[in-house]
Nucleic acid binder design. Structure first.
Lengths: 158, 158
DNA sequence: CTATATGGTCAATGAGGTTGTCTATCGTGT
DNA sequence: ACACGATAGACAACCTCATTGACCATATAG
């Protein structure tokens, strides 16, 4: 079979990153056009980490793999942009719960829709069969929760 | 034909990043064991950008998508670690050519070998056929030069 | 009730990038 | 030949975003 020469081992990781970049860039281009021009690549991770029920700065830091102070600053920034709001927890006066605002939820909903649209386009490009082969291959190559959210920090890690 | 439900669109990008991370982490774990414990994920990009013939800080900055000053600082760091050295260009007194040292070349050679070993392991996991499907799919999803080297800066971009 | 653990904030620090400015050198056009 | 614009590099100031350490308020266990 495949009489093609074996590709060099470094091609796959580079293509993985390039494909990821391409997708995220496309997502942000579209979501910017739909009224969210201030978002940066990692903000999607943060929204996902906050989740529909809200969370706290400490818990957010744990999920994102950063210190609670760094998480707090990120929240502060998103608060100024109007994507999250902070309230107090009646059951625990220490906790300040971070929740997505309507604008934040709108952003999450649009993201999910755009991701589905993009997947449909890849399916049209590759064929659903090969796309599933790719997804299945990646699941087996990198098993586990895809929502490991400590990624933003990882790239520039010491 | 795939009676499985369609996966949500956000899974693929997350898996792409997770797979990339997994591979790069594995590479660095192995290369650390082989005598290069000080390297960080982006250093491989820098070595590739320097190339076998050497380059200058300005050109390096262009390839990496950062300012010449930032490239200069990176070179300074790699010089202290013993991976690159700076010499003067007899044909142009302004240029200071950055070249890989023997240690730098050793690192590149080992990286290439480890990447090939990793690919062989993925081939054993997925089967060569599916691995090629994945590679081919990614080539079509993200065409172009996989060595776009402005990636390190991209992730945290403003 | 006290001791300890936890959530949040403030302050100082460091890594890594940016822009702006300056000098030295190259290359070109008159 | 020479003056001028473009280029390579170094230095400084600043910005962003992370870090650690210290501190206070509050919850919870013994």
């Amino acid at each position: 079979m495949s009489s093609e020469p074996t590709p060099p081992g470094f091609e796959l990781p580079l293509r993985l990153l390039l494909a990821f970049r391409t997708i995220i860039d496309e997502l942000h281009e579209r979501i910017a056009r739909e009224g969210h021009p201030d978002l940066r690549p990692m903000h999607g991770f943060v929204f996902q980490a906050i989740g529909p029920h809200g969370t706290t700065a400490v818990e957010l830091g744990r999920r994102l793999g950063v210190s609670k102070q760094a998480a707090g600053k990120t929240v502060e920034g998103l608060e100024q942009l109007g994507y999250v709001e902070r309230g107090s927890d009646p059951a625990d006066a220490r906790r300040k719960v971070v929740r997505l605002t309507d604008r934040g939820v709108d952003c999450l909903v649009r993201s999910a829709r755009i991701f589905d649209e993009l997947r449909a386009e890849w399916s049209a490009t590759l064929g659903e069969e090969q796309l599933r082969q790719v997804e299945d291959g990646l699941r087996r190559l990198a098993p586990g929760d895809p929502f490991r959210l400590d990624t933003p920090r990882w790239f520039g890690a010491p």
